[in-house]
Simulated scan of single mutants.
Amino acid sequence: MTEAQHQTCVFKWAAQPSIRSKWPCLKLLHHVPNGGKRDKIEAAHMKQQGVKRGIPDLDLPVARGKYHGLRIEMKDDTGRTSIEQDWWLGELREQGYFCEVCHGWESAVRVLEWYLGLGEFRL
């Protein structure tokens, strides 16, 4: 499976009625579309509009436990993070976010379930 297919599976899992009723806040889970191939003009426009290399793929802006939110960098079974992705993950961790690199959709689901099970945000 490709990274995109794994990511699609995460959203299919999150959209299931039984999952959505257990964790209604999953309605806030979204993809940050920074990747993909673009021509030079479109890439320049995206950069002017604030697109930055390395932003994690998935964002769940829901505070849990001691974390301000969850960020997931999706990879296929053999994918590796780039220097920019490692930088963003480190910076976001310093700001109080839980960040994880997930190889495959099952890994991302396990992280989401663990994170959502942390309970209410507390300092």
Rank of each mutant, 00 (worst) to 15 (best):
R110D: 13
L70R: 10
V109P: 03
H103E: 01
E73L: 05
K27M: 10
K27S: 13
K37G: 15
G69C: 03
K27G: 13
Q7C: 09
Q49T: 07
K40H: 09
Y97H: 08
H68Q: 13
T81W: 01
P24K: 02
F121C: 12
C25A: 14
V101D: 01
I41E: 03
V111C: 11
L123Q: 09
K37F: 12
K37E: 13
L28S: 10
P56G: 12
M46F: 10
L58W: 01
H31K: 09
H68Y: 11
Y97V: 05
Q85W: 00
G104Q: 01
G119A: 09
A108V: 03
V62Y: 00
G65C: 07
W105C: 05
P61R: 02
G35H: 00
G69Y: 02
A14K: 08
K75E: 01
P33A: 04
Q5S: 15
W114N: 10
Q48A: 14
M74I: 04
C9Y: 01
H31L: 12
Q16A: 13
E84M: 12
R122G: 11
E84F: 14
M1N: 06
W23H: 13
R53C: 12
A4G: 14
E84Q: 15
A14D: 08
R110P: 09
V111E: 02
P61E: 00
C9N: 02
T8N: 07
A15M: 06
K37S: 14
D57I: 04
G54L: 03
V10G: 01
G50T: 13
T2E: 05
R53H: 14
K47Q: 13
C25V: 12
V109N: 01
K12E: 09
D39Q: 03
L28C: 12
V101K: 00
F11N: 09
E113I: 07
S82T: 15
K22C: 11
